[in-house]
Each structure stands twice: as structure tokens, then as C-alpha cells.
């Protein structure tokens, strides 16, 4: 047999550096780490609140320190990146029949943004920010 097919190995640890598409995908995946850490931080906050005023103040000081604010901004940035990239692909994962075709993609994406805005508004109102 004269054949000898040559297999090009995919680099296990650096494959996502091969093109921007993969990098963007990895950023979306990595965003969950920051969102997770932020959720953990909130949980810690709840525990501190239960422990008493002193601990709670301590916690508040922690998250409003420059490092805390930087972390929050970073987590917010990643949360936005995750949401926006996710919203953009939703029309492909959920096709809603309409007439002979489907609800157009931009309408589904817009609906997500509208719901996002409304939910954010409600929370901001509840929190008394607005």
C-alpha cells in the first residue's frame, strides 16, 4: 500500500490562537469566569450581611476599593460581551414561524434588548437608583 495519509495534529492548548473567530469564542467562554466570580462575591456579601453591620461595612469597603471597582467593571464588561454575543445568535437557535417564513432575525434580537432594558429598569427602580 503506497498511501500514507498525513495527520496534522491540532495543538491542544493553543488551538484558539489560530484565528480571531476562535479568540472571540474563547472570550465569550471566559466571560463566565468573571460572571461566576461576581456571583461568588455577591454570595459573600449576603453572608457578611447576615454576620452583622461591621462585617457588611467591611464588605462594602472592599467592593468600593479601586480593585473592587476594577473587578466590577471587568465583570460588567464581560457580562455585556456575553449577553450581546448571545443575543446576536438567538435567532438561529430559535426560529419562530410567521406566515410562510420566520420572524426576521433582527426582530428577535431587538426583543432581547428590549427585555434586557426593561428588566434593568425595573431593578434600578426597585433599588431606588432612578
Amino acid at each position: 500500500m503506497s498511501r500514507n495519509p498525513y495527520v496534522r495534529e491540532v495543538p491542544r492548548t493553543t488551538w484558539y490562537m489560530r484565528n480571531n473567530r476562535y479568540i472571540r469564542y474563547m472570550l465569550r467562554e471566559v466571560s463566565c469566569v468573571f460572571i461566576g466570580l461576581y456571583a461568588a462575591s455577591l454570595t459573600v456579601g449576603l453572608v457578611r450581611l447576615a454576620q452583622g453591620d461591621n462585617e457588611w461595612t467591611h464588605y462594602l469597603n472592599g467592593i468600593s476599593s479601586p480593585t473592587g471597582i476594577l473587578f466590577s467593571l471587568l465583570a460588567f464588561g464581560f457580562a455585556c460581551y456575553h449577553s450581546i454575543t448571545w443575543f446576536n445568535v438567538t435567532p438561529r437557535a430559535m426560529r419562530i414561524p410567521k406566515g410562510d417564513g420566520f420572524v426576521p432575525g433582527p426582530a428577535i434580537v431587538s426583543a432581547h434588548y428590549i427585555i434586557w432594558a426593561v428588566v434593568s429598569l425595573v431593578f434600578l427602580l426597585m433599588m431606588g437608583v432612578l
Binding site: R21, Y22, Y25, E29, V89, R92, A93, R95
Partner: peptide, 19 residues
């Protein structure tokens, strides 16, 4: 599939396999 979405971006016939 982890929804990288690359398949749909390169598809010459707009099949959208990722979707």
C-alpha cells in the same frame, strides 16, 4: 457542539449548521 459558530460563518451556501 459548543456553539463556536465558525461552521456557519464559513458555509458557502448559508446553511447555518450551528443554528
Amino acid at each position: 457542539c459548543s456553539f463556536v459558530g465558525a461552521c456557519s460563518e464559513v458555509c458557502p451556501k448559508d446553511v447555518d449548521p450551528a443554528g
